[in-house]
C-alpha cells in the first residue's frame, strides 16, 4: 500500500516539476534556473508543513515521499549549478546554490511554523 501511495505521489510530482519549470522558464530569457528554484522552494514549504502535521504514514508516503520528493530535485539543481559555473557565471552559480539552500530552508521552516500555529 505504501509503495502504491509513493508511486501515485511521484507520478504527479515529477510531471508537475517539468510543467512548472517550462512555465517559469518561458517567462524570462536569462539562463538562471528560476523554474527549478520554484519547485524546490514550493516542495520544501509543503514538506515542512507536512512533517509538523498530525498525519498518518499513508499521507506522509503520498504527499511527502512521493509528491514532494518527486516535485523537488537535487540532480537538476546540482547540474545547473555546475553548468552555470562552467559557462563563466561563477557568481550566478554561487547565487543559485546559496539562494536555493537559504530559500528552501526558509520555506521548510515557514511551513513547519505555520502548521504548528494552526494545529497548536
Amino acid at each position: 500500500m505504501t509503495v502504491l501511495l509513493i508511486a501515485l505521489g511521484a507520478a504527479v510530482g515529477a510531471p508537475l516539476r517539468y510543467l512548472t519549470d517550462r512555465a517559469v522558464q518561458s517567462r524570462h530569457a536569462s539562463p538562471f534556473p528560476w523554474g527549478t528554484l520554484t519547485v524546490n522552494v514550493v516542495g520544501s514549504l509543503v514538506l515542512g508543513a507536512l512533517v509538523a502535521a498530525p498525519v498518518g504514514p499513508a499521507v506522509s508516503a503520498l504527499l511527502g515521499t512521493g509528491f514532494c520528493g518527486a516535485l523537488t530535485t537535487y540532480s537538476t539543481f546540482g547540474y545547473e549549478t555546475l553548468r552555470l559555473a562552467r559557462d563563466g557565471s561563477r557568481l550566478l552559480a554561487l547565487v543559485n546554490a546559496l539562494t536555493s539552500v537559504a530559500a528552501g530552508l526558509g520555506a521548510a521552516t515557514l511551513g513547519y511554523a505555520a502548521t504548528r500555529a494552526l494545529v497548536g
Binding site: 515529477a14 516542495g43 514532494c68 518527486a70 537535487y74 537538476t76 528552501g104
Partner: peptide
C-alpha cells in the same frame, strides 16, 4: 532525457527532504 533525467533521477533525488532534515 525526459525518462531518465527528468523522471528517474528527478524522482530519485530530493531537495525537500534535504532541507527538512537540516531544519530538523
Amino acid at each position: 532525457r525526459p525518462f531518465l533525467g527528468v523522471g528517474v533521477l528527478g524522482g530519485y533525488t530530493t531537495f525537500s527532504t534535504y532541507v527538512v532534515d537540516v531544519r530538523q
